[in-house]
Simulated assay, not measured.
Amino acid sequence: MPLHDPPVHFARVRQILQGEASEPRPSAKITFVLRALFTGETDTEISPRGFVVRFAGGGAIPYVSEAAPAMLLALLARAQICPQGQALAFRLEDEDGYALTGIPDAARWVWLVPGEDVVLVSLRRPTSAGPPPAEPSPLPLPSKLKKLYAHLAQPLACPHCARTSSVYRATQDAWVCGGPRCGQSFSPPHRVRALAELRDDAGETVRETTARPKIYR
């Protein structure tokens, strides 16, 4: 992720998610970025430090933050949604995704989680008719890694034994408590899961982390 992107672009992203009206400006650059978001299933982080799209299997591509505001405007305009600073979940049909990207079979569930420090955008293929569930399913982890661990900036309490820890074993569907008398799995909140730093059992970082967001209203 670029470390010196102008923070003005993140400020513009927050203004858009607070409901400031503006018309998206179509461009080849924005279409390129949207095609990346619609490549399978993705998690995107937008922060003052930059803009990165993460893919199933652990891959990630950074983009310049300049594209983030127009990308969000295009998604919201297609969904005919005017946000008011709250988290959003909505559905885009095949024709919507195709109009944005030119990609067929582009129906997606979309989640937008605005925060003071980071904005999360998740896209998943619908698995049923109707609107998306409250939170997206986790992206599949890299298959070549036998063990992954989620490292947190702030300790998280296990919902089963109440033991707090800043490190949890990460599987595709859940985290596993490392307490000697627990070892039970649980599904962490989406924001916590998305912002954790994943490392393999050799200590190598699988993906970058950012500060935990504070949801604004």
Rank of each mutant, 00 (worst) to 15 (best):
L112I: 15
A36K: 15
T44G: 00
I16R: 13
S185Q: 11
A21D: 09
P126E: 10
S22Q: 13
G130Y: 09
S65I: 02
I30T: 15
G97V: 12
V119D: 06
P62S: 03
I81D: 05
R193L: 14
A67H: 08
A174D: 12
R124A: 09
P2A: 11
P6Y: 05
M1H: 05
H151W: 04
A107D: 02
G57C: 07
L145I: 13
K29T: 10
F90R: 03
A36D: 09
F90P: 14
A68M: 05
L195M: 09
A74P: 05
E208N: 14
L156D: 01
T209V: 06
A74T: 13
C177W: 03
E204A: 12
V64E: 11
D105E: 11
P69E: 03
P126N: 06
C82Q: 14
P213S: 10
P131C: 08
F90G: 09
P104S: 14
G115N: 12
F90Y: 13
E135W: 00
V167Y: 00
D117R: 14
S22V: 10
Y216S: 13
R25W: 03
I81A: 02
R54F: 11
R12P: 00
D200M: 02
G130P: 08
F10G: 11
A87N: 03
T164C: 07
T171M: 10
P159W: 10
A99Y: 02
I81L: 13
A56I: 08
V192W: 08
S122I: 05
Y216Q: 06
S22H: 07
D200Q: 05
T209A: 08
A28G: 03
V64F: 04
L92Q: 12
T210Y: 01
A60P: 01
D105M: 14
A134E: 12
S128F: 13
D94Y: 03
G19C: 08
I46M: 14
G179T: 05
G203W: 11
L195G: 06
L3N: 09
Q80Y: 06
E208P: 10
G97K: 01
P188W: 00
R35G: 12
A157H: 10
R199D: 01
I81F: 05
F55G: 00
P189L: 12
S65R: 09
E197T: 14
F186M: 01
V53G: 02
A70F: 01
A129C: 08
R54W: 08
A129H: 07
Q86H: 10
G85W: 11
R125Y: 12
L17F: 13
A21P: 04
V206G: 08
M1F: 09
T164F: 07
P2E: 04
A153F: 04
I16N: 08
Q84A: 10
V110K: 01
T164A: 09
V33A: 15
T127G: 15
W111A: 02
R54C: 07
K146V: 09
L88N: 07
Q84S: 09
R124L: 10
H4I: 00
L145G: 00
V192T: 12
K147L: 11
V13H: 03
R191W: 06
T31E: 15
G85T: 03
A77D: 13
T101H: 12
K29F: 12
L195T: 15
L100H: 10
R181N: 13
P159G: 04
Q80V: 10
K214M: 09
Q84K: 04
K146F: 02
V206W: 06
I46G: 04
T209L: 00
G115P: 01
V8N: 01
G179D: 13
S27L: 10
L100C: 04
F38L: 09
